[in-house]
Design a binder for these strands. Structure first.
Length: 666
DNA sequence: AACAAGTTGTTTTTT
DNA sequence: ACAACTTGTT
């Protein structure tokens, strides 16, 4: 059989050399940022100010000036963002830019830690726990400690994990955190501290690493192991960090440590767009960057090339009212345009109908669905709209919110794969064993204990074979052992492994989800396809934990992709992107800002910045909409006032409109 | 100890 | 509307 490999086609041959006209392509501030190569640089880049373009040209400039692309590190908020930049840089100076190291802090930490795990006393094959895995572990430890009795009113697993994570990301401790912000949980301080210690030990003993550990371990590595830090610093001679306003202190320490040998760091960010404080991010990182790196050169990009003047006027008006003054005002480069509109709708259905109709009209006018996005504060805000779009045959993708990888059945399949990669992964064992008939938490624990010494799949099979057999699960255990042995060999491609697990799992799936298993089987088919794209199980597992596929399953026909796809997205997931037309829905006080954040001034401010981010995504058209006549169960009140962020804005900046529906009901 | 049915609470954003 | 927890039955 003939074999061959396909590689992405380079947009420019790598040997092609021509001078890039930096002066002609960039404005003076962008030019300064792109051509200041050595030493610390802080770029304060307003929305739409050509930040990406600037970074792309800087990568090109570095490569052009003879820097080996492998010595450049580009830390971004998503891997997609890094890939996009490197693709564009490659188009300028050749495909070698693909060798630039890039990705998120978490994925970079993952790569470095796999190489250096032994220095930290860990196995390179450690397993990454996602949020729900962490919750499972904490829940287990919580009931073991007898903290699940009702009368204690001990916090639930998600609240506990939230606290542990927040403490890490804010570089503080659980007691300090409780004192300031979680006073109502103070009575549980001792138990929580003990639980946290137990959680830590549990992970360490089983080679489990959660998201926060990735950052902590990398920080420890560059802080406490001078030789490793020096080595990394020599490897990555030029470091660029995008979205710096959404980094936390740990990440700042990591940057500081990585650059120890040279100080060649460019941080790029916008304090007005800081929207991740719930993850411990602080826009003060930007202010403090010059403290971390003395002699920092500060460059501001304040020219906006994205939006029309009226849209920019609204953006400036929104941020103008912020409690803390921001460092810049955007100047428009594009001409006039239609004004943004604040649209009042009778109720949620009316809002959905309005959005849907307006989108259809735009399409008639020649605006591709690819150029339109609907943005919202919380993922569930789009549920009703999704139904309406489906009825109207408008194809869309949804970003943010629940991911396909987080569904129970996909996690079940993944758990089998994780066991093979790390037989000590207690979380996955628990999950897999519970699937068997007649096995509950107790028995699962017992079986896992029986396997405790097993660190290879051979030993696992041995262990399962010698487990005392009684009851319904006897056969199932044998089958499980056979499956694990079957999928263990490294030669078997990941796609094939997943296919075999799915074959093994499907009967159970039908049993568990008698009602809706066809849909779930489709998901698993999709997952087999995804797995087929990977060469190694390790990279598949890392990606599933750190960069899971964001598209909501392949339920879109190819023909529809041809004519374009509407985007529905949380504002958080829309960061860094832009569209011709933007709709921001549910601009109701209590939803946006969320009632959950109304009690704290800082949190209200963050929500304000969130609206600023939403507004500045728009190039030409912007609609803000809100329904009245809403009872909100969660908030326990009747909503219906437009968001405080737009109340009182002059009509000249944000004209108010009202949807009048005619022609009876639909 | 496991499972099924019934009850109570809880809602964001993401690596 | 859904998930987590509780109670009752096998």
């Amino acid at each position: 059989m003939e074999t061959y490999t396909l590689r992405p086609r380079a947009e420019a041959p790598s040997d092609r050399r021509y001078r890039i006209d930096y002066e002609g392509e960039l404005n003076p501030a962008q030019h300064a940022a792109a051509t200041t190569l050595d030493g610390p640089v802080l770029v304060v880049a307003g929305a739409g100010s050509g930040k990406t373009r600037t970074l792309v040209y800087r990568v090109a400039r570095l490569v052009e000036s003879g820097v080996n692309p492998g010595q450049i590190l580009l830390l971004t908020f998503t891997r997609k963002a890094a890939e996009e930049m490197l693709r564009r840089a490659s188009a300028l100076v050749g495909a070698s830019c693909e060798q630039v190291a890039g990705g998120t802090f978490h994925s970079f930490a993952n790569v470095v830690l796999r190489r250096t795990a032994r220095r930290l006393g860990m196995k390179p094959g450690f397993t990454i726990l996602d949020r729900s895995d962490s919750e499972d572990v904490v829940n287990l430890l919580r009931s073991r400690a007898g903290l699940d009795r009702k009368e204690r009113r001990f916090p639930r697993k998600n609240a506990i994990v939230e606290i542990f994570s927040m403490a890490v990301n804010r570089s503080t401790t659980v007691p300090a955190l409780l004192e300031d912000g979680y006073a109502h949980l103070y009575e549980h301080l001792e138990d929580l501290v003990r639980l946290e210690e137990g959680y830590r030990r549990y992970k360490r003993d089983r080679d489990l690493v959660d998201y926060d550990d990735l950052l902590v371990l990398l920080r420890d590595l560059v802080r406490d192991y001078a030789d490793v830090a020096a080595q990394l610093s020599r490897t990555y001679r030029y470091i660029m960090v995008d979205e710096y306003q959404d980094t936390n202190r740990l990440q700042a320490e990591i940057v500081r440590g990585l650059a120890v040998a040279h100080d060649n760091v460019m941080a790029v960010g916008d304090d007005s767009q800081s929207i991740y404080s719930f993850r411990g991010a602080t826009f003060r990182n930007i202010m403090e960057f010059p403290d971390l790196f003395p002699a920092t050169r500060i460059i501001k990009l304040e020219e906006n090339y994205r939006s029309t003047q009226p849209i920019l006027d609204l953006a400036n008006a929104v941020i103008e009212r912020a409690a803390e003054k921001h460092t810049k005002i955007l100047h428009a480069h594009r001409g006039p345009g239609g004004p943004p509109m604040l649209v009042q709708c009778a109720d949620e259905q009316a809002q959905s109908r309005f959005i849907c109709q307006r989108i259809l009209e735009l399409r008639e006018e020649g605006v591709s669905l690819d150029d339109i996005a609907v943005l919202f504060r919380s993922s569930f805000h789009s549920f009703d709209l999704e139904l309406e779009l489906q009825r109207a045959d408008v194809p869309f993708v949804k970003r943010g919110g629940f991911k396909f990888i987080e569904t129970a059945h996909v996690k079940d399949v993944l758990a089998h794969l994780r066991i093979v990669a790390n037989p000590r992964d207690a979380v996955s064992w628990h999950r897999v064993l519970l699937l068997l008939d007649g096995v509950g938490p107790k028995k699962a624990d017992d079986i896992f204990t029986h396997l405790a010494e097993a660190t290879t799949i051979e030993a696992v099979s041995e262990g399962l074979a010698t487990y005392p057999r009684r009851g319904a699960y006897t056969k199932d255990l044998t089958h499980l052992a056979a499956l694990l042995a079957e999928i263990a060999p490294d030669e078997l491609p990941p796609g094939e492994k997943v296919a075999r697990i799915v074959a093994f799992y499907t009967p159970m799936l039908r049993q568990i989800h008698r009602e809706d298993f066809p849909k779930r089987e489709k998901d698993l088919e999709h997952f087999i396809t995804i797995a087929g794209r990977y060469r190694s199980v390790a990279s598949l597992l890392s990606d599933m934990a750190l960069e899971p596929p964001t598209d909501s399953v392949g339920n879109v026909l190819a023909a529809e992709v041809e004519e374009g796809l509407l985007t529905l997205s949380t504002i958080h997931s829309a960061k860094g992107l832009e569209w011709h037309t933007i709709f921001v829905i549910w601009l109701v006080d209590g939803r946006f800002p969320s009632y959950l954040n109304l009690h704290d001034g800082d949190e209200v401010e963050e929500e304000r910045r969130l609206l600023y981010v939403a507004v500045t995504r728009a190039k030409d058209n912007l609609y803000l909409s809100y329904p009245i006549d809403i009872y909100d169960r969660a908030a326990g009140m009747v909503l219906g006032q437009p968001s405080r962020f737009v109340q009182g804005l002059p009509e000249s900046i944000l004209p108010g409109m009202q949807v009048i529906e005619s022609g009876g009901f639909r």
